[in-house]
Amino acid sequence: MTEVEYHPKHELIREERFPHVWCPGCGLGIELQCYLNALEKSGIPQNNHVLVSGIGCTARIPGYANLDTYHTTHGRGLPFATGMKIANPDLKVTVISGDGDLFNIGGNHFIHAARRNMDLLVICSNNFNYGMTGGQHGSTTPLTSKSASTPYGNIEPTFNLPYIASALGASYVARWTVMHPRQLTKSIRTAMDVKGFAFIEVLSPCPPNFGKFNGFKDGFEEMEFYRKSSVVQNDAKLEDISIDPFHGKDIVLGDFVNRKRASYITLEHELIDRIRGGGQ
């Protein structure tokens, strides 16, 4: 039964690079698979898909996808993707990066890309800490939880990512965990057709860092924790869905926002047509 064959995603991954760099129990591989599943179903040719990332564990995802992939500097995936999308609007540009990359060092870029309603799909993998550097706390670390740099417990409130994205005017906002691969795939698939800024937060376990510091024995326990403490509520009031699981609060998941709002590329092309005298 274990004869050597190609994985069904053979055409979509760089198989010669496997096994990948991520730790046992890391959810990023699942995230990559969900993205590739959605890509297959999107109907957009594989050649038109581009993956861009910043720096971090999540930012290594593009390196394993058999697409045109760009691994840039820490926090700068979004502006890089912005430039690329404007220069070639035919591309379906997806930015896939971690919470630290997109919201700490790259927070300003996120604010502005969402405000512009830039035609990008942003998948933010949230593992509640800086994984690659050894599990230090960041802006998404839940209150009172421990990390390599909050040994006495975190005293800083966290970002509520879907609320931020929605307040900035993103066209599409969702939150899932890697324990919900089918819902996540469907969400990414929907977001690929969205005109404007689409944002999906994906909660993912980080067993050797966040998990270890907060009493999870292994990745499976952390996955079970996500499964047990999450509820799906698509019409949730976004201001109430900040993540605070260690004080008995449910993690609210769902496709929260899907609205029509003029995207940057549409408006820019209208402007160019107007200036050039009716679309030459």
Binding site: T72, L78, M84
Partner: peptide, 26 residues
């Protein structure tokens, strides 16, 4: 815009530099 090119005023110089590299790769 007159010649069908693209202009964008970014949020800072870090973003500007990243954007022109992205555009060049595009």
């Amino acid at each position: 815009p007159e010649i069908g090119g693209h202009f964008i005023e970014m949020e800072d110089e870090i973003a500007s530099m990243a954007a022109i590299l992205g555009a060049s790769n595009g």
